[in-house]
Design a protein around this nucleic acid. Structure first.
Lengths: 219, 219
DNA sequence: GTTTCATTCGAACGACTGTTTTAATCATAC
DNA sequence: GTATGATTAAAACAGTCGTTCGAATGAAAC
């Protein structure tokens, strides 16, 4: 950490950019290092020089984006919690989702990639790294939702959070299509409207009355 | 179609079974034909003999499951529509989701694989095949939701259906984890409760009041 | 028996994979 | 200038990939 950074100004970032794009489009296994280095206009060996392996490159690609997104999530969440406003789900959902939409307007592929990584592509070793980072976020938001929905049984809250994540993930994954469908509107406007509608939908779902545990199972 | 089927009683199905499991677990590109043939205890060349290529095998794996699931979906949907009951979202959601849970109790990996295929793994050529089959289902259910929610603007209904699919897909993808978490309950019971809660959540989301189009965009 | 045709098998093909090695290149410090 | 250390470049490494080929095997038809 002396000053050895910034020595190779961009080849490292060029690799990260190209890898991010290709991983998101084709997936980890379908993307070869030669595709990445060709897209980045960089020598093949540069990947194993700057990163140690292809899988380490994947983790680097993920870390570069997940860090800021999760920081912003916590920032928005604590800002709301310190505002003294009454407990509600909408601000919590906003804190959870908005950071993804913000980074999405810069680079569309990013959220799509994060969805991929979260529960599909990665090998077991990498998945553990990703999951650990995400589960800390999950715990933090679980507590926030719990405050807003004190009556909801634990099992049901947990599952509903899964539903929320699913709706969010699928929206991120198909954001590109959404932009293509809505012509004559700026990307940012579409994103913000989508976010608004997504919050509205999931908030209503979270607030749905809790089902009684002992409901008869349809025979 | 004379009688050439049933000649090789099971090697074809053994390949399909092994491929289904591995594709769902590791993904298409991370699964080699040698893994499949080893798991199926079948010669390597048998894949290219019975199916023409690896990608054709993927389509065959998909077709074997998607067909019955979609048929059952339409069966449940038309049964509800012909029952003369008042328009509502719950029976439509049930028709959309239940078939996936039913096949899921037989083979856990199936829905997970279908999620993969739908918008991640497949190459462009295969994706077109899968999407075509699914979009017909989408159109059919879109009409049903439209009847139940006549006041909802078109754009908003479309997006909310995306949210529903996302919640469903994520639930399918992490069904294995859910089963692991809930001890002391049969798989079928967990599945049915999850389905019930998922319908309740998405029904509330779909019924949320429509947001006014001209809401101020946060500057 | 022989013929016929579908299926299985072992072996190999060329292409592509991630990684490593060795030498060339560059900027900076002395 | 030379020396140092980080970066880039070209080439090759051992392996795996999907696919193909020709012979062996099987069972049913005649």
């Amino acid at each position: 950490m002396t000053d050895q950074n910034q020595q190779s100004p961009d080849t490292k970032n060029r690799i990260l950019d190209a890898a991010e794009l290709l991983f998101a489009e084709k997936g980890f296994d379908a993307t070869s290092l030669r595709m990445i280095t060709a897209a980045a206009q960089v020598n093949l060996a540069a990947v194993n020089y700057h990163f140690q392996s292809k899988e380490a490159l994947l983790q680097a690609v993920y870390a570069r984006r997940a860090g800021p997104v999760n920081e912003r999530r916590l920032e928005l969440l604590t800002a709301y919690e310190n505002s003294g406003r009454a407990p509600a789900v909408e601000p919590v959902l906003d804190a959870l989702m908005r950071p993804l939409f913000e980074v999405g307007s810069e680079r569309e592929c990013v959220p799509r990639l994060m969805v991929r990584l979260l529960y599909l592509d990665a090998k077991e070793t990498s998945r553990a790294v990703f999951a650990a980072q995400f589960q800390e976020i999950f715990r933090r938001f679980h507590a926030a939702f719990r405050r807003a929905l004190p009556h909801l049984p634990e099992q049901e809250l947990f599952l509903r959070m899964q539903f929320v994540v699913g709706a969010l993930a699928n929206t991120m994954a198909s954001m590109k299509n959404l932009h293509a469908l809505s012509q004559g509107q700026t990307e940012g406007a579409v994103s913000m409207k989508t976010l608004q509608w997504l919050i509205q939908f999931t908030a209503a779902g979270l607030r749905a009355p809790a089902s009684s545990e002992d409901s008869a199972c349809a025979s």
